[in-house]
Computed example of a mutant assay.
Amino acid sequence: MLFEPITSDAALTLQDLTVAIGNTPYVQGASLTVPKGEIHGLLGPNGAGKTTLLRTLYRATTAQAGTIHAFGRRIEDHSPREWATKVGALVQSSGLLAGLTPRDIVEIGLFVLQLDRSEHTDRRDAALALVGLADKATQPAGNLSGGELQRCYFAQLLACDPEIYILDEPTNHLDLHYQLVLLDEVKRRGRTVLMTLHDLSLAIRYCDQVYLMTQGRIVEQGPPDQVLTRDALRQYYQVDGQFQGAALSLVGPVWSGTGGGFSTRN
């Protein structure tokens, strides 16, 4: 177990978190601390337990053991509304879109904040403009492309601007321009961020610290350039490669000779 004590500058702390679905453990004894204003990344191959860990933070899943604190208070000590104003999430799966527009989707997220109408409108319109959807604000959301939908849900989160951002593969479906635009904006705001990433170059670019997970456990942690070594890439990602500055140079896959054996859990 990697134990992370609660400190006065911690925005988010997980201690010895264990999450099981049925009889299968997806997260085992995970501990981490994200100081205020830092961006931390959860990395690892498919099935490592990254998404399951994040789901406990936006209360879609309940941990069987361990504790979660935000700004020194346990998650159980926050009402659902209070937690929703403090912690906002961008997740991989979205809800039903029938009859909704991008404007509606952003407004749904803002309702929890109970803003006056002027600020509500200003936040909504600024967020849609930032993600490049101002011209499609009143079009059916079901007609948007995958990348446009991701930008729409990003607009919802940016409009709410919680103290802690939980981002599950935030660059899914995004072209390179918007990957940089939106993560640059998150970084500019100086909020506390915990996110999963498959693009390791983005982890190098944006993360102050990363946690490398495999089979539900955090096995390495530290600055990304110190964690994502050639040996780590070979052992946990089964690729032969190394970083040269922020660029990943890949030789090719590493085969174990066992025919794979990857978990399908995410």
Score class of each variant (00 low, 15 high):
148 E>H: 08
141 A>S: 14
153 Y>Q: 11
155 A>T: 02
141 A>T: 05
151 R>T: 13
171 T>G: 04
129 A>P: 00
162 P>F: 10
137 A>E: 03
165 Y>H: 12
176 L>I: 15
148 E>K: 08
147 G>W: 02
131 V>G: 01
159 A>K: 13
136 K>I: 00
148 E>I: 04
176 L>K: 09
148 E>N: 05
169 E>W: 06
149 L>D: 00
160 C>G: 00
134 A>N: 13
146 G>P: 07
147 G>V: 06
165 Y>K: 03
167 L>I: 11
135 D>V: 09
140 P>H: 10
143 N>G: 14
148 E>D: 04
144 L>F: 08
155 A>P: 06
164 I>R: 11
170 P>F: 10
167 L>R: 07
134 A>C: 00
157 L>V: 08
168 D>C: 11
133 L>P: 02
136 K>R: 15
134 A>H: 14
131 V>I: 07
165 Y>R: 05
159 A>H: 12
127 A>G: 08
169 E>R: 09
163 E>G: 14
138 T>I: 00
138 T>W: 03
152 C>K: 06
145 S>A: 09
175 D>Y: 13
175 D>I: 10
147 G>L: 04
153 Y>I: 02
176 L>H: 13
158 L>S: 05
134 A>V: 04
135 D>W: 00
173 H>W: 07
129 A>T: 14
138 T>A: 10
150 Q>P: 04
161 D>G: 02
132 G>S: 09
142 G>K: 11
133 L>T: 02
132 G>M: 10
140 P>N: 10
153 Y>L: 14
147 G>F: 04
159 A>F: 13
151 R>G: 07
166 I>S: 03
171 T>K: 04
133 L>F: 00
161 D>F: 02
170 P>L: 13
175 D>W: 13
146 G>N: 07
157 L>P: 01
137 A>L: 02
162 P>K: 11
146 G>A: 06
